[in-house]
Amino acid sequence: MSSVSVIVPCYRYGHFLAQSVGSALNDQDGVDVRVLIIDDASPDDSAEVAKKMAADDPRIEVLVHTENKRHIATYNEGLLEWADGDYTVLLSADDRLAPGALTRAAALLDAHPEVGFVYGHPVHYTDGGPIPAARTSVRGWTVWPGHEWLERRFKAANGCITSPEVVVRTKLQQQLGGYDPALPHSGDIEMWMRFAAHADVGYLRGVDQAYYRVHAASMSKTDFSGQLDDLRQRAAAYDAVLQRCADQLPDAQAMADTVHAKLARQALWRAARAYDRGRTALVPVDELVGFAAECWPDYQRLPEYRGLSMRRRIGPAVMPYLQPLILSAFAHKGREWLWWKSWRRRGI
């Protein structure tokens, strides 16, 4: 029977622990699961809640910080110092696993020793709202060569994983290390790509592997200045992979060109959309253009830059009214002006 170590970092989320930990211990047939709850010096009763759970279930352990170490140090403490199962999961206290998620992931990892980590579809749901029923019947799985999966990420220039849906081979995790403290908001992207440079990647098709809780407060908060920080953090993550995994990436320069051009296009598109939506006073347009120039010296030849230049000529006062007509015209010409992919990052 395969064993799974589940680390549950917690800060002021003690009221979610029963759901989160319960999802890892219940309805996970055929795997031996142990859970470590790490309370990062919560100012509420989270530590007491965790200790009560551990007293009632020998599969649960608790570690309480006397001082707040923040998320990266807390994650790595569990991943690199405590986990000793065949496979490892990092599960935030406000998220939960789907029924059978560990069973399905362990089956793929058992069958494919070349796979370093496996993931599946996460269900996003709003805090306080109904929780959709998870799909639990596997339609099959896909195993990508690590470099192929990595190239896809460089072409997309964004993450495709939220986090709770990932199960990692513990040996690989501890061999390659954990989250990079220099990447507080994109350390997960960098880590998955670092793993893919050394191992293959598995994906479970047709099933839901985890529930990702979207807090209502975060849904109503729009941080326009954070758009630039998001791009910079992603660029730093990709550059870190290129540097650290250079020996495993014979086509590193081509991959660097691909992701830098893509990030430049995304920055210019965000700047253009600020005109479309009448938000030029809120969105750091000039800084986004500056970031594009840093990423891709030839940024002025990109189609997104031409679109931004056109919007600047029209002006921010008129552009929101003309935006539907202009977008339709470009779509008719086959231009990719409707590109926008949300990239949510939790506070990591």
Rank of each mutant, 00 (worst) to 15 (best):
S46M: 10
G116R: 11
H121I: 12
L90R: 05
H15S: 12
D95N: 14
T103H: 08
H112Y: 07
T88H: 00
T103Q: 11
N26I: 13
E77F: 15
D56K: 14
T88F: 01
Q19R: 15
S92G: 14
D84Q: 11
A24K: 01
D110N: 12
A83D: 03
G85P: 06
K51V: 12
N68F: 10
K69Q: 15
D94S: 08
W82P: 00
N68D: 13
Q28W: 02
Y87S: 01
S46Y: 09
G120I: 05
E61P: 02
A18M: 09
A18P: 02
Q19L: 08
Y75L: 06
D86Y: 05
E77G: 12
Q19Y: 10
T88E: 02
V118F: 04
G100F: 07
E114K: 13
D95F: 05
I7K: 01
V123I: 15
D84S: 14
V49D: 03
M53P: 08
A55K: 11
P113R: 11
A111C: 08
Y87R: 05
F117Q: 08
L25N: 00
I7E: 00
N26K: 15
H15F: 06
L63R: 15
G120H: 04
E48L: 09
T103A: 11
V21F: 06
I72E: 12
H71E: 14
L63F: 15
I7R: 02
D27A: 13
P58G: 05
L109A: 00
R70V: 11
S23R: 10
L102V: 04
L79F: 01
R34C: 11
D94G: 13
A83N: 03
H71I: 15
G116A: 06
E48A: 14
G85E: 04
V35L: 07
G22R: 10
P122T: 00
P9V: 10
S23Y: 04
V115M: 10
D95M: 06
V33E: 03
W82H: 00
G85V: 00
A55D: 12
D86P: 03
G100E: 10
I7V: 14
Y119C: 13
G22Q: 12
P99W: 07
Q28L: 07
A41V: 07
Y75V: 10
A106W: 01
D110V: 01
L80E: 04
E81P: 04
D27W: 05
G120R: 04
R34W: 05
L36R: 14
G78H: 08
L25Y: 00
H121D: 11
E48K: 10
R96D: 03
L97S: 02
A54W: 08
D39Y: 12
Q28T: 03
E81Q: 13
P99I: 09
S92M: 12
S5G: 13
R12L: 11
N26D: 11
V123D: 05
Y119P: 02
D39R: 12
L97K: 01
G100L: 06
D84Y: 00
E81Y: 08
H112D: 13
Y75R: 11
T88L: 02
V64Q: 04
L25A: 01
A24P: 02
G116Y: 09
V89L: 03
P122L: 01
G85D: 02
S23M: 07
P58Y: 02
A73W: 00
H121A: 06
